[in-house]
C-alpha cells in the first residue's frame, strides 16, 4: 500500500513537472509564432513599400528624361536601311542610330 502511495506521489510530481515544462514550452512557442507572424507582417509591409518605391522610380515621367539624355527615342522609319551597306554608310560618329524628338 505504502509503495503505491509513494509511486502515486512520484507520478504526481513527475506529471506536474512535465505539465509545467510543456506549458512553459508552449508559451515559448507561442511567443515565437507571434514574433514570426509579426516578422511576416513587417516583411509584407516592407515588400509593399519597396514595390511602391520601385514603381515610383520607374514612373515614365522620371524615365523619359533619362532615356532622352541617352539619345533614345521612339522608333522611326528613318532608322530603316535597305541593305547592310546602306546602314553602314549612314554610320557617322555622331549618329547613334536613335532619332531626336520629332516635330519640334
Amino acid at each position: 500500500m505504502r509503495i503505491v502511495i509513494l509511486a502515486a506521489l512520484l507520478m504526481t510530481l513527475a506529471s506536474a513537472f512535465v505539465l509545467y515544462s510543456s506549458n512553459y514550452d508552449t508559451r515559448q512557442f507561442e511567443l515565437r509564432v507571434a514574433e514570426q507572424e509579426r516578422a511576416i507582417e513587417k516583411a509584407r509591409g516592407d515588400i509593399a513599400v519597396l514595390k511602391a518605391e520601385r514603381a515610383h522610380l520607374a514612373r515614365p515621367d522620371r524615365i523619359e528624361p533619362l532615356a532622352r539624355a541617352l539619345g533614345l527615342g521612339p522608333a522611326s522609319e528613318k532608322q530603316l536601311a535597305s541593305s547592310p551597306d546602306d546602314a553602314l554608310a549612314r554610320l557617322t560618329p555622331d549618329a547613334t542610330g536613335s532619332v531626336q524628338r520629332k516635330g519640334n
Partner: peptide, 9 residues
C-alpha cells in the same frame, strides 16, 4: 502589370 496603385502602411 506595372503598378498604378497599392496599399502601404
Amino acid at each position: 502589370g506595372r503598378l498604378l496603385a497599392t496599399d502601404v502602411e
